[in-house]
Write a protein that binds this DNA or RNA. Structure first.
Lengths: 231, 231
DNA sequence: AATTATAATTGTGCATGTATAATTTATCAA
DNA sequence: TTGATAAATTATACATGCACAATTATAATT
């Protein structure tokens, strides 16, 4: 593990252990350098990382402060980075509706930069949070990148599998959000009424090398949908 | 202006001028260093900045590539950083419903970390995009930070005023998103029906020193609401 | 032609050092 | 006590240099 990531983790642990709250001050740079026995550039990288994660904010001439948001029960919209803690409190599960290798839809091929005769894995599932239906999700995975999926993997965590088993590195993603009304089918899966509000999100996930590997279409249950975002 | 910001701007200009598309390669680090006559650390900072803005992505051992998203007509949810271009295409205007100095609501005081006997500016307005109602917005500004507002400022851009005229620096923000149904009043302002879907966003804006100065509650017209987000 | 091994390319990690801008604290004058 | 001024504190900007990891290109081998 990289030194600056290690140090960032330790600083987060420091914040936890000391029960620091919004606005509380951390030791100054020099102290942190000494404490973790790293150079200024490394500490700076660690702190920049934490700042992007929303864990701290830095004020020139003043110090380094803890950043906390007050509200509980919100799910991070950008869950790719550092919001494990938010999710730990919840009981997450999922029910697989469909799982198969097939040709991509035109839409999927377009978003995944694939030819129509290439193969994708198609996964359709309902995800539950504390036993309540949270969202209906349809995903297309480029099969030349993700060559194999089964029920167990999909049940567990596809992304963990991609990272740990396949050794791929997930990079950036593009999210497109819409507000709309539930179709009858969506309503059935989400245990709501047709015409009820929904948040509909299409996401294209890319590897660090820029290749798109996952195109997802998710409809969220508006009753369970409280999202959090840091700017 | 800082050197690395300057260079970042010039790199963006370079991308524009050369009409570079998603995946196109930029000159290698060494070339960029030479071209802009800055050190590696400066170029690196510029590139990291552009990467966070979603303009490029870097691949170790391979190169620096342009990042573009295909879809037009989406509004950035995190509009604070570098999405001017997305908005330039639109005709934005606003109609002021209410503008006054008053005591904060309990909710506003809580989110702005204020006492109940302190003062806030309250602004209620409908914002239009290409003539269509985009959202209904209620904002509370801590008056000890933003001591004066008038119709002209509110009509124009409050944030530009805060930055340019007051010399304040806007830092981070916390966004809380909900999906819900429009109330009768909201529907009237947005020219929709009561019960129609809405995206409801509460945002707390902070200065770079961590002080919250603006608490906003915004209900979006679902017909106009296409949002974009980069992860 | 395909596979494997090797080398070159290219971005990232990390250390050190100097200068500077923003903020806070201390000092001094009124 | 207040208010201005100077000094100290603290994070940030920028440069340089070395080592290394990931990728890509080249050469060697089968």
């Amino acid at each position: 593990m990289l030194k600056y990531q290690q140090v960032a983790d330790e600083i987060e642990k420091y914040i936890e252990d000391h029960g620091l709250q919004q606005g509380d001050k951390l030791p100054v740079l020099e102290s942190l350098m000494a404490r973790f026995e790293v150079s200024k550039s490394t500490i700076t990288k660690s702190l920049d990382l934490l700042e992007r994660k929303g864990a701290i904010f830095q004020v020139r001439g003043s110090g380094i402060f803890v950043r906390r948001h007050k509200r509980k029960g919100y799910i991070s919209l950008l869950s790719n980075k550092g919001f494990k803690r938010d999710l730990e409190e919840y009981q997450l599960s999922s029910e697989i509706i469909q799982l198969e290798a097939r040709k991509p839809t035109e839409e999927a091929a377009l978003n995944l930069n694939m030819e129509f005769d290439e193969d994708v894995y198609y996964v359709k599932r309902v995800r539950y949070i504390n036993g309540q239906p949270l969202c209906l999700e349809e995903s297309f995975y480029n099969k030349s990148i993700v060559p194999y999926l089964n029920a167990e993997i999909v049940q567990d965590s596809i992304f963990d599998y991609i990272k740990d088993a396949l050794g791929l590195k997930v990079g950036f993603s593009d999210l497109y959000l819409h507000i709309g009304k539930l179709t009858e089918e969506e309503a059935r899966y989400l245990q709501l009424e047709k015409g009820d509000p929904k948040l509909y999100v299409e996401t294209i996930f890319h590897l660090t090398n820029g290749k798109p590997f996952d195109f997802s279409k998710v409809s969220y249950n508006y009753e369970q949908s409280q999202f959090f975002l840091q700017g």
